[in-house]
Design a protein around this nucleic acid. Structure first.
Length: 261
DNA sequence: CGTATCCTGACC
DNA sequence: GGTCAGGATACG
């Protein structure tokens, strides 16, 4: 589920559930999670208190009183699931933070592709990331520089977290529809006028997502989207049939009528 | 640059 | 039983 709005929403929930609490245990409940979080790492955080939870792009950093940091990425299907003391842990929870008061913060992830890694104090767990998609420094002038010399399509560039942090496949497509831009346009060929439209489209798309709860409800709720998962259905702006194509091994949905080259 | 890969679940 | 999926990275 998780692009910037969903991760932000999840981080708010995690903060309420974890900040100020002390870890009694950290458990990897799935083999693929245990690989990234060996028992030495898990043991190293016992007794630590959660001091803050930060979000950057789609990444979350759980800061601990010892200075260590748990770096969390939801990938495709991750989300937080909070339980009260004594409540059973959902079988799809892959990593669980158990607090001394008996409550837990669980990483719920059907596909188990999420990652949780422990970093020592002073390390920067984050990869190189562009500006926040919702931030003031993300504007047309920045994008012009960031996209200069990029040969690929604009849609693919928007998914590159080094260009802009927080966009994923759904909102990249949605934002291009709002901006009325063809996702196949070569990234470096966009001028300031169209880039300004694109930045506005991204801001509006993400702001709307934040308002409407910030969570994907389910697959099949394409009513919430202009183009995503709407192949064959009429465009809400020009009534042409929405198309689905493949770009960079991902699906792209767009309207061939009003999203212009 | 495109493609495979990590996983599981939902859907045809 | 095969295909596809909201992400990121390691390849060739």
């Amino acid at each position: 589920m998780p692009e910037l709005p969903e991760v932000e929403s999840a981080a708010v929930i995690a903060r309420a559930a974890a900040v100020g609490k002390t870890l009694a245990a950290l458990r990897a409940l799935h083999p693929s999670q245990a690989r990234g979080l060996p028992s030495e790492s898990a043991n190293a955080v016992v007794g630590d208190t959660v001091t803050a939870i930060e979000r950057r792009g789609k990444h979350q950093l759980i800061r601990l009183s010892s200075g260590q940091v748990l770096h969390v990425h939801f990938r495709m299907t991750g989300d937080w699931l909070v339980t009260a003391a004594g409540e059973r842990i959902d079988p799809l929870v892959r990593v669980v933070l158990e607090f001394t008061d008996g409550t837990t913060l669980g990483l719920h992830d059907s596909r188990a592709l999420s990652s949780v890694r422990l970093h020592a104090a002073g390390e920067n767990p984050l990869p190189a990331l562009g500006p926040e998609a919702t931030g003031a420094s993300f504007d047309a002038a920045y994008l012009r520089t960031a996209l200069a010399g990029r040969r690929g399509a604009i849609k693919v560039a928007l998914l590159d977290q080094r260009v802009v942090a927080g966009l994923g496949n759904i909102y990249a497509a949605e934002a291009l529809w709002v901006a009325a831009l063809d996702p196949r346009i070569r990234a470096s060929s966009l001028g300031v006028v169209r880039l300004t439209r694109l930045v506005a489209g991204i801001r509006r798309t993400l702001a709307k997502a934040m308002r409407t709860t910030g969570r994907y409800v389910d697959r099949g709720t394409s009513a919430r989207f202009h183009v995503y998962d709407r192949a064959g259905q009429p465009c809400r702006r020009c009534a042409r049939s929405i198309r689905r194509i493949t770009q960079g091994a991902r699906s792209t949905y767009f309207c061939p009528g009003c999203q212009k080259r």
